[in-house]
Nucleic acid binder design. Sequence first.
DNA 1: TGTAAAGGTGGGTAAAAGTGGGAAAATATA
DNA 2: TATATTTTCCCACTTTTACCCACCTTTACA
Lengths: 149, 149
Amino acid sequence: MLMGEYHNSIDDKSRLLLPSRLRTEVAGSTLILTRGVDKCLWLFPPEQWRRISDSIMGSSSMFKSKTRLLQRRIIAPAQECEIDKSGRISIPPTLRESAEMKLKGEAVILGIDSYMELWDIDAYADYLQESETDFMEAAEELGELLSLQ
Amino acid sequence: MLMGEYHNSIDDKSRLLLPSRLRTEVAGSTLILTRGVDKCLWLFPPEQWRRISDSIMGSSSMFKSKTRLLQRRIIAPAQECEIDKSGRISIPPTLRESAEMKLKGEAVILGIDSYMELWDIDAYADYLQESETDFMEAAEELGELLSLQ
DNA sequence: TGTAAAGGTGGGTAAAAGTGGGAAAATATA
DNA sequence: TATATTTTCCCACTTTTACCCACCTTTACA
């Protein structure tokens, strides 16, 4: 199970080290990188990616506008990437820029059960701040859910 | 049952001693450390953590914004940590910083029934002060609830 | 009040993780 | 085709982490 929040920097070759705790959880060295919902990138192990892309394509017709949106935002930008011998992935410039991640900038790497998220550190701080109220609400709801158990 | 309020210091290797009173209450030497709601860290025994994470992940889709919030704020930052031979846990820097806890700084450790909370001593003092009014209100409400019984 | 045991603190060391950069290969440009 | 630029691969160095051990302090009890 992927978990943990890490801060690593992107070097001037657009490479990002995946924390070893996360690396040990993924089988093989191939991952699929694509644009996420919110200003981040998503990084999937291949089987996981297949599940997501199947569920988008499965419910889909290219003649429905919402499907086309999902396809363009999530399916189309996807890139296969390899983990190199030092445990880094190289992030294609177009994807990097779509998440406001800068060369030599700090990135946040999140392990979320079966996939990972990559954020620019400032963009992530902004996101957390903007969503603070929603988070407190969600936490309250979760509290009610738990107390029913 | 976990209880008590303790003050211990974080050493320059980011280690924190868990008071032995709390240690004797937890089975095994593995705990899950994550960001709490409010500016603190939560420390759960594994079964307790499973309850929380199951209830977040169970109702979940990565395509719902509230789920993503809970995943990012609570699930993702989680780390397994081991109690060492001297009874200390090592707090990963990213988590430590998210709760404003400093190397060589004083921490407050709270035992709360089935889990623990870790605070920076100053952040905790600020929290108590800021929430004084809310606390008085909560106490009143509890009073009304109890007198109905 | 002395002594043993438990609790708590600090630090050394080896291994693992992370970082930067050079050189070769691949691709693009003139 | 020659040159420039980007990408990939690899190696060496630095930093961090995990593990262990020694010692100091407090507590319990004779």
